[in-house]
Design a protein around this nucleic acid. Structure first.
Lengths: 234, 234
DNA sequence: CGTCCATTTGATCAGGGTCAAGACGAGTGG
DNA sequence: CCACTCGTCTTGACCCTGATCAAATGGACG
């Protein structure tokens, strides 16, 4: 394994304001890890021995019910922390984190979190801000799940995905990692069948272009119309 | 208005470890406020000028959609903080807080939050733990909304309510504040009609006793069976 | 070339939303 | 003290969205 370098993390807002020396100390305590596509970084209900920083790739956070149904709570992009359960007073992970593509993560023992937070104010502040916005997101999702029809929820999900991980191509804005109908269904509380029907309908109208584990949005404007109100249906 | 006394807050875990002197300082900066039933403590999207501690009463946190539908995100019990948006990097309140009964709250200007957190470590730590568990709750709710049938969601909602604000009576465990069918519908993403039908069905089976803005659970065990699995339906 | 998985598409049907009407109390004003 | 009104709750009838069941198609990859 190659030696870890502070340049890996020096650009991140999370570590803003740290000296080169401090960055070295932080990186020095991390273990880097390659996680192949489909593998879990950590599992729901397991002991939260570490927290992670996603350096490269995309991760989905999944909660599973006792009955075996999965719900995708959110996707994680490079530069974000995951597995900070411990920082919030939990001893186990409340969800699983699965690599959507091959990923690179840095891992620190959970115990270090409070040390980092105490030593580097920006680190603590940024984390709490992150948690705060995740709480907002979760509440927004609850509202969507409570009040919207399936087509609106799927439209919203796609818009969030391209906002977070969109990549411009000739086909429009492409979601930058493999995502199946099943995945979208698990984000929106519906079935892969319904998602499939929606996608083909939207494809015919020219709103999206999609294929096997691939979705691109060609007309975000009209997709947003579907997401926003049900008045705009035709 | 009577003089504020440190005894109001001395028992709370939030202020654990503060000296009598410190408690006086904290209370001294607060303004106490009586909020009549039905009135808002703060409104969604308004400037977050203050954060609040609920001393007495019950508050529901409501998010409203642009289309005018309301979703009840959670209920707040005495001793809990509300309106801590500012602490999480927001400048406006993400939801409204409405008094479910006549309430007493303490209010501090938002700017004081960071001062308190810096000066009294227990205060900051407790808040973040609170935010963490609210994030958990929100995710749990998302999972429930995604995977459960209406009867399960309503059963879960009632169980949470009696766990949080249950009061033992001859009729079973009573929810300690007025709550309508409409309220329960807004917690569970359904309509008051469906809630009404469920309640009468459960009343006939002897699971609950309910009336106008009043719900008591007489058989939590069987209610939990409904909430848990759909295998147990008959 | 064969196997596996993602996807598509059709047919069916039920959970629960919508529409409509009424009953039941609780508070208000005469 | 009673009549009235308003808000909550109940209940029936109907129908639509989207789940379920079933099967076929089509790439991707070994």
């Amino acid at each position: 394994m190659s030696r870890l370098d502070r340049s890996l993390i020096s650009g991140l807002p999370l570590f803003q304001g740290l000296t080169a020396d401090n960055l070295d100390r932080v990186v020095g305590k991390a273990r880097s890890q390659r996680v192949p596509k489909g593998q879990a970084i950590f599992e729901q209900d397991a002991e939260a021995h570490a927290f992670f920083l996603l350096l490269d790739g995309h991760v989905r956070v999944v909660k599973s019910t006792p009955e075996g149904q999965d719900v995708i709570v959110r996707y994680i992009s490079p530069g974000e922390l995951i597995g900070i359960a411990r920082a919030l007073g939990r001893t186990t992970y409340p969800a699983s984190a699965v690599a959507a593509v091959d990923c690179i993560v840095l891992a620190w023992p959970s115990a270090l979190w409070s040390e980092f937070a105490a030593t580097f104010p920006a680190f603590g502040a940024h984390t709490y801000k992150t948690v705060g916005s995740r709480l907002q997101d979760a509440h927004t999702l609850v509202v969507e799940m409570s009040t919207e029809q399936v087509d609106q929820r799927v439209a919203h999900a796609l818009l969030k995905l391209i906002a977070q991980s969109g990549k411009k191509t000739d086909d429009g804005v492409l979601i930058d990692f493999p995502i199946s109908r099943q995945d979208i269904a698990e984000m929106t509380g519906t079935t892969l069948h319904t998602v499939s029907r929606l996608m083909t309908a939207w494809e015919e109208k020219g709103l999206v272009r999609s294929g096997r584990q691939k979705v691109a949005v060609t007309d975000p404007r009209r997709l947003r119309q579907i997401a926003e109100a049900h008045a705009g249906k035709e």
